[in-house]
Design a binder for these strands. Structure first.
Length: 630
RNA sequence: GGGCCCGUAGCCUAGCACGGACCAAGGCGCCGGCCUUCGGAGCCGGAGAUCCCGGGUUCAAAUCCCGGCGGGCCCA
């Protein structure tokens, strides 16, 4: 039994009692323990449609619920003019839940919140530079979604799209081909950083300065788009090396991939020829006959005959080339398993867990994605307009059911604080935040940021002499750093831009990932010093309000997990983890465990054990790394 | 200009999905306390809020609706 199951039981009982379900029973856990463990303002809402007074209705519902003798319900009170407050037999309910949680962990939840096949496309960084802090938001959202869904019993397939035919790649290659940058980075610099911070930035600068280089840039770009030529072959070797370097960073963040899909391979395999299918089938897609857009093919979202650039999307230009949206539309069809279209794949490498990463290639076994139940595309919010157009076409051509599977999982940009921009890049700005720019080299690499974080955490541990071996301390510091970065980027609402300030992100005080890990370390310290296990027949009458406060917070976890998966919001788990850790630290200050005498000591050990198990469970659900010492 | 998103103490954020005990919670910063108790990356106390503005719906609005204002993003 857990609070979610109990809540469902209560809901059903109320629906049956009133004989209608049009007014939803919303259950909440009251802030204050004196209002019980579960509460609903249902009587206020339902009173109107039932033509009754809230107080009377609430009383009747209470009497009915009590008459059912639902297990674990000790008392029900009507308070505050109509709230129905359910008080549980806390000794039994908390103890029983804690015991099962500690014994079964994740098994308590696996398969309970739906099942199916989910494809997630994420990361999608151009192969000309290192992963920066803005990409990290994308990657960490993907990681969290993957862990959440796969842990709860969904089959998850992970794809990473790599655009190796764009102008960014062309500019990088211009640096190697025309500006004679050596292929080997200076003194041990990581290859992706070298490409992005040194070669690419310089190429962009030179192209802007020298007209002659624009022609070279165009020539290289054409070679990349056409493929099957020495420039493309060279470029592909460089790009693969960059991607391998990028993946090292992604792995640090907990990422995993099943298939890397390269734009150049998709072009060569003829994927784009399939665009004609949807062009013919859709009435929204039209070939423009005259005017400015003559010869172009356009997704017509707007009403009327005129092309409205504010609303409509060009998918094929007048010269016959595909736009980004056109490419993405046909790619979407492939990812949804709608095309009978195999692309050659080969093994690219391995994930940290040992599973294979496949990559598209010019030859190899043919691969076709299985149709997923949902397709989550983790893409920035700035792409909303083209993403909506794609979805509309899918809806029209393949029906609501298929179109509904296509989800633009969007998030706002990560910007740079003006202070950081000035201090580290010498860029002055009137505004409080600056847009990052790969072209100007105005961004923080994840590797560099993590290195700074690791250094600070490591020094902290050395000062506290908390860990003996240097090697172990380094590993721990890495996890603390990643956890903190993850909290910074995941706990914030996806619709809000994040202003990244390097100095603030290096501060591990307060509401941070480190805080969560620290509380977990404290819990583990108690457990490992205890020398015995707890007693899971807790008698709360012998304990105080802080024991109770932590306990009733632990018990809420199933509700949080349910919301997180229902709304695909890992943020709910992150913010809950922080509040839970806070509750634990309150408990820690006021409730001595080891120095207490039995039975209090063993009751508290059980609570600490339940807390640690909850943190382990939730951390696993979002991919948050944990440490037992720090 | 149009479309979408955001607006909560000096700053950052939670709560908004599903209106309910919210005279609004947490963090940073500021002021003042707590290291002979299980690890102080912690805890306690204090100051700090027209929940952008106006209207509407409702027994009840930070939450829903309408209109404004301000900011962000997008518009081959």
């Amino acid at each position: 039994m857990d609070i979610l199951l109990l809540g469902d039981r209560v809901k059903e009982a109320i629906y049956e009692f009133v004989g209608r379900r049009d007014v939803e029973v919303t259950l909440e856990v009251p802030q204050s323990p004196e209002y019980g463990d579960l509460s609903t303002p249902y009587a206020f809402k339902a009173a109107r449609v039932l033509g009754r007074r809230p107080l009377d209705l609430a009383s009747d519902i209470r009497d009915h619920l009590l008459s059912l003798g639902i297990d674990y319900i000790a008392d029900i009170r009507v308070e505050g003019g109509g709230y129905i407050n359910i008080h549980l037999d806390r000794n039994r309910f908390y103890s029983d839940y804690f015991r099962r949680l500690v014994e079964e962990g994740l098994d308590l939840f696996r398969g309970r919140f739906g099942e199916g096949y989910v494809r997630i496309e994420y990361t999608s960084v151009n192969p000309n530079k290192a992963i920066h802090i803005g990409h990290a938001r994308n990657i960490l959202l993907g990681v969290a979604l993957h862990r959440l869904l796969s842990s709860l019993g969904y089959r998850v397939h992970l794809m990473n799209y790599i655009d190796d035919t764009g102008v960014q790649m062309a500019d990088l290659m211009l640096g190697f081909i025309e500006l004679n940058f050596p292929l080997e980075p200076p003194n041990g610099m990581k290859f992706d950083k070298y490409c992005g911070d040194v070669v690419y930035v310089e190429s962009v600068r030179r192209v802007e300065e020298e007209r002659r280089l624009r022609d070279v840039e165009r020539k290289i770009l054409r070679a990349l788009e056409e493929g099957d030529n020495p420039i493309y072959e060279y470029s592909r070797r460089v790009a693969e090396r960059v991607v391998r370097a990028q993946l090292e960073t992604c792995f640090r963040l907990g990422a995993k991939y099943d298939v890397l899909a390269w734009e150049s391979d998709l072009v060569r395999s003829g994927l784009h020829n399939h665009l004609s299918k949807v062009i013919e089938a859709s009435r929204k897609i039209i070939r423009v006959e005259e005017g400015r857009y003559a010869g172009a093919v356009v997704i017509k979202v707007s009403e009327g005959d005129e092309i409205d650039p504010k609303r409509d999307e060009v998918i094929v230009r007048s010269d016959g080339t595909l736009t980004y949206v056109g490419k993405d539309l046909v790619f979407a069809m492939w990812k949804l398993g709608l095309l009978d279209m195999h692309v050659p794949v080969d093994v690219f490498g391995e994930n940290p867990d040992g599973s294979k990463i496949f990559t598209t290639r010019d030859s190899g076994l043919g691969y076709k994605p299985d149709p997923p139940d949902i397709l989550l595309n983790v893409i920035g919010r700035e792409q909303t307009k083209p993403q909506n157009a794609i979805k509309e076409v899918l809806r029209e051509v393949y029906g609501e059911e298929v179109g509904g599977k296509y989800i633009h999982y969007s998030y706002e940009l990560v910007k740079l604080s003006a202070e950081s921009a000035r201090k580290y890049f010498g860029v002055e700005s009137e505004k409080s935040a600056v847009k990052m720019s790969g072209r100007r080299g105005l961004y923080f690499n994840v590797d560099d940021v993590l290195a700074k974080m690791v250094e600070i955490v490591y020094r902290h541990m050395v000062e506290n002499k908390s860990i003996a071996s240097e090697q172990e301390a380094r590993q721990v510091a890495e996890k603390v750093a990643v956890a903190s970065l993850m909290y910074q980027l995941i706990a914030i609402d996806r619709d809000k831009p994040i202003v990244f300030d390097i100095d603030k992100s290096l501060d591990f005080k307060g509401e941070t990932g480190a805080y969560i890990l620290y509380s977990y370390v404290r819990a583990n310290s108690i457990l490992s010093n205890a020398g015995e296990s707890g007693d899971f027949n807790i008698d709360y009458s012998l304990l105080n309000m802080y024991d109770l406060g932590l306990s009733r917070f632990i018990v809420v976890a199933p509700i949080v997990i349910h919301s997180a998966v229902k709304y695909l919001e890992p943020k709910y788990i992150m913010t809950y983890l922080y509040r839970l850790a806070k509750s634990f630290n309150d408990f820690y200050e006021r409730c001595p465990v080891l120095s207490s005498t039995d039975p209090v000591r063993r009751y508290r050990l059980a609570i600490v054990r339940a807390y640690a198990s909850t943190v382990e469970l939730l951390a696993r659900l979002v991919g948050l790394p944990l440490v037992k010492k720090m």
